[in-house]
């Protein structure tokens, strides 16, 4: 029983760390894209891929979203910090133009926040 309880507590600790405390390191961030790259985000299987986007500060950017996920949840895209919201048609590329941003982390998500990604402005 002790072992089971221990495993249970470890699982809880893992959940807390994995979903709430984890912060991607630079190497993982770089997997997303390099500053200045054309950014294409695939909306598929319940996620934005990649979900961490590196953008250059104080420069307007364009991100292309390609929605492959038929779920209606995936159809709406919201950047709450910039009051941008758009519809992503299925199997089509939608360009989102973002204004110049200050350094920081900005979230983007679907209308229910089940799909979530971050813009990391450096």
């Amino acid at each position: 029983m002790l072992i089971i309880n221990f495993v249970g507590i470890v699982l809880i600790a893992f959940i807390v760390w994995w979903f709430w405390l984890y912060s991607p390191n630079n190497k993982q961030k770089k997997l997303a894209n390099n500053i200045g790259d054309e950014v294409n985000i695939m909306v598929q299987d319940g996620v934005y891929q990649p979900s961490n986007i590196i953008l250059k500060a104080n420069t307007p950017s364009v991100i292309k979203f390609i929605r492959k996920d038929p779920s209606p949840c995936a159809a709406t895209l919201i950047f709450p910090d910039f009051e941008i919201s758009d519809e992503l048609p299925l199997n089509k590329t939608t360009e989102i133009s973002l204004p110049p941003m200050e350094k920081g982390k900005y979230v983007f998500h679907c209308s229910m926040q089940m799909y979530k990604g971050y813009l990391v402005v450096e």
Partner: peptide, 19 residues
Amino acid sequence: KHFYIGAWRSFVNHNANMD
């Protein structure tokens, strides 16, 4: 299948949802 794929994709992205 869509639930399991969605759940896995979300998990590797440190996200969790209905899936």
